[in-house]
Amino acid sequence: MSAGMQFGFLDEYAKREIRRASLKAVAIPGYQVPYSSREMPMGRGFGTGGLQLTLSLIGPGEMLKVIDQGSDDSVNAVNLRAFIEMTCPGIETTTSTVEAELIQSRHRIPERPLREDQFLVLQVPYPDPLVIVESSEEKRKMLHGEADYSRLLVKLYEDIVKFNEITISHRYPTRIADHYVIDPSPIPRWDVPKLDQSPALVLLGAGREKKIYAVPPYTKAEPIAFEDVPFRVEDFYDQKGQRRACARCGCRNSFLDEYVDSTTGELVYRCSDSDWCDEQLLIGDAPEAAHG
């Protein structure tokens, strides 16, 4: 870091604005607080909202984990982590969910339950679940204020009529503390229940759309559903009704990514959360460990 560069890249005014916005976001659970998202040395849409939150939160001596689609090694995660390490001297980074104090993530919430002393920062591309039914932001803000989600419910109901279930695979509209409905970012349905009564504070940042919102700890987070069509997470059962296991660690209760084996052409399933997968391998009882 050059002598003239601020710790955390952002100037103190930018950080203060994000800090004020995040406090209001926590005080008004699920409400999208506008802020003047700063230009970052990477394109908007590459996690700049989450990044600005992390840079405003973090201090020397803290342990950071950055993940993208469950992996610490994908391009987006590697770039963001390198940038934060460069601009925040004195912080430490880890791939371990247990060790991390601050976790910035794109598209996943770690499998391992988070603790009270941890923070989760989620990168958000599209913060407003009402966009699909109302194009005017002014009107959307009023609908949110009144907690009027009838048009969103109708939209979901149309899905049920057509497909017999709600087909949303990620970004599942979730009601926070019985008022605001949020877009929980492109996490799979699997991760949505982790927001409910979470011991850790969850902050969500949309850099391009200039919004910050929050799910406070120990707060109700309820995926929108109908009495006769309840919310369901992905089930990962095969044709025989057996729960698929991760091909690497053997875990049968994690969110699985589907790959096509390039030599055999077969479908292969593996844990999406790479740290979780490594941990299960260490515990043993797994195919690879058995070979070792």
């Binding site: 710790f7 950080k15 995040s22 406090l23 926590v26 405003s56 939160l57 009270e116 504070l201």
Partner: peptide
């Protein structure tokens, strides 16, 4: 700034809990 970062975190945790 370094003290304000720590105090912000205290305020954030206070507001969250």
């Amino acid at each position: 700034p370094d003290i304000q970062q720590r105090n912000y975190r205290a305020l954030l945790d206070a507001m969250a809990r």
